[in-house]
């Protein structure tokens, strides 16, 4: 019997859920799907008292994880607080992966050398700088992942991104959501991105 390939690989997306980040959020989903990977996020987890356990399980289930620290900043709503979710989940991932003796987490940032200032414990880790641009996310994902056979180009990722954005309004309307940061909308966007990736990436 021929040796079967490893089953699908899942990628944990640790990203901020805000309106300004929407384009980059879709870019991550499109980019990750273009590599034939399945995006996963804490969006899938319903709010409950056991949320942290579920986050840990989700991180553990994923082979790779992407942590975007570009919006770890003070919000405008009073009281002004920095956003700790992304660094916290990065910490959980690092601890979990150290335990499993592997290092497959990647930090993305919009500004160079900011991570060294905000999170100096990670000095020695090269953050991937996307400059807050969709094309930057694609370029950095291309630097991070390589696939034998079906290697997506930045143009193919951009095509998937455009198609997902075109379908976004219909998806949100059908799921009754106002933003893509809802569990059902996220799942639908991932499936559409994956369908396009399968079609576009040769």
């Amino acid at each position: 019997m021929a040796k079967r390939k490893k089953p699908r690989t899942e990628v944990f997306l640790n990203i901020p859920y805000d309106k300004k980040f929407e384009r980059l959020f879709i870019a991550y989903v499109a980019g990750v799907s273009a590599f034939g990977l399945v995006p996963r996020a804490t969006l899938e987890i319903p709010d409950s008292s056991r949320r942290l356990n579920k986050i840990l399980k989700l991180i553990g289930d994923c082979e790779y994880s992407i942590h975007d620290l570009s919006r770890v900043e003070l919000d405008r709503k009073k009281p002004c607080t920095p956003r700790f979710n992304m660094p916290f989940e990065l910490g959980l991932t690092v601890a979990q992966q150290k335990h499993k003796k592997k290092e497959s987490w990647y930090v993305f940032e919009s500004t160079g050398y900011r991570m060294e200032k905000s999170l100096s414990d990670l000095n020695g880790t090269d953050a991937k700088i996307h400059e807050g641009k969709v094309a930057g996310v694609f370029a950095e994902l291309c630097q991070t992942f390589k696939r034998r056979g079906r290697q997506p180009t930045v143009q193919q990722m951009a095509r998937i991104y455009r198609e997902v954005r075109r379908n976004q309004a219909a998806i949100l309307k059908e799921s009754g959501a106002k933003s893509p940061y809802k569990a059902r909308a996220f799942r639908d966007i991932c499936v559409v991105a994956s369908a396009w990736a399968d079609r576009v990436v040769e």
Binding site: R8, G36, V38, S104, F145, R148
Partner: peptide, 8 residues
Amino acid sequence: VILDSQFA
């Protein structure tokens, strides 16, 4: 990272 898993 070189991916050797199945294309999802």
